[in-house]
Design a protein around this nucleic acid. Sequence first.
DNA 1: GTCTATATTTCGATAGAC
DNA 2: GTCTATCGAAATATAGAC
Lengths: 197, 197
Amino acid sequence: MMAQIDNKTYERILAAADALFSQRGYAAVRLRDIAEAVGLQHASLYYYVPGGKEQLFVEVLERNFQRHREGLTQAIQNAGEDIRQQMLAVMGWFLSQPPMDLARLYYADMPQIDPAQAERLMRLALDAMSIPVCSAIEAANEAGQIAIANPFMAAMTLVNLAQGVKLIPASYLSKVERRAEISAEVVDMLLNGWRKR
Amino acid sequence: MMAQIDNKTYERILAAADALFSQRGYAAVRLRDIAEAVGLQHASLYYYVPGGKEQLFVEVLERNFQRHREGLTQAIQNAGEDIRQQMLAVMGWFLSQPPMDLARLYYADMPQIDPAQAERLMRLALDAMSIPVCSAIEAANEAGQIAIANPFMAAMTLVNLAQGVKLIPASYLSKVERRAEISAEVVDMLLNGWRKR
DNA sequence: GTCTATATTTCGATAGAC
DNA sequence: GTCTATCGAAATATAGAC
């Protein structure tokens, strides 16, 4: 029953699956990896997710995108009116989340699942990322803080760079650098541009 | 012998493998996909690549990175002295190449092959991308065209955004938009920044 | 060189005991 | 609910004919 699967173990399975799928993608994660992370035999996963790997993947992504949409909206709202603070909040949000590789998702993962599901999920993904950030950019535009001709492109640029910072391997970070500092550098570079002012 | 495998079929196998691996990643490509693209049975691939899938992947990446390093250097050089033209050349180069997802490469693909090979390949990848672009940025810095505090970060930002433009699904491009135009928009956004001038 | 046939391994999925 | 055992499909890899 629904009441039964709404328990701790189910949540831990989804969390482990989210972390693994987000990092390695659909094909490179085995059900055995997820089971091991939760401390179960892989066959036990079918008690919670009768649809198997694909259903697990879809449920993980749905939650993932919903969480991103709410989290981004909240982070931006908490950051106040200043677009720079809002951009830093966006970067910070993605740093706090499992990595998200939209390109891998679209080109590698989606072709392996049901096409109708794939299309729906990609729509959810794009909306989750673009709508909150786009709104913030348009508001800052109207407030005169920035002058962006193509808010959607700007939003996806920011999201793209946030993923980039998130995914810098730890071994490439010097001892003093932290992702939060790099995020701030990236934001200021985006705001001020490469040319002298 | 080496002379035998240096033929047309071998080149076609590498080209097909490059296109498929670049798009879908290591795990999501089957040897049968590559063989089919070349018009062979998958078992025939072992005549050219005795080491199988992993060897094929490694050889493809080595060539891939070498080509990128040379192609980027050449594209930048042909673009003249202006950093904007050089940036457009970088964007154009990546548009002309199979997609490259460094994050997927590092987190999804590399863990599936020999660790020593993986480390060597990631070094090649990072050098191929960063060194040519970084040099151009530093030169433009000294010429007073731009003012960049962290050339390496700026270089990887440009590379990251170039991949982003390359990977926009065709279905998300309106009829009038073309990737080259979006590339120019991105470059100008990077150069001028979001804030009013 | 390329094929067919087959071995081997891996992995998702199912059955059934407890 | 979780386990063990096993199935069946798929994918890599090998053997050997042509």
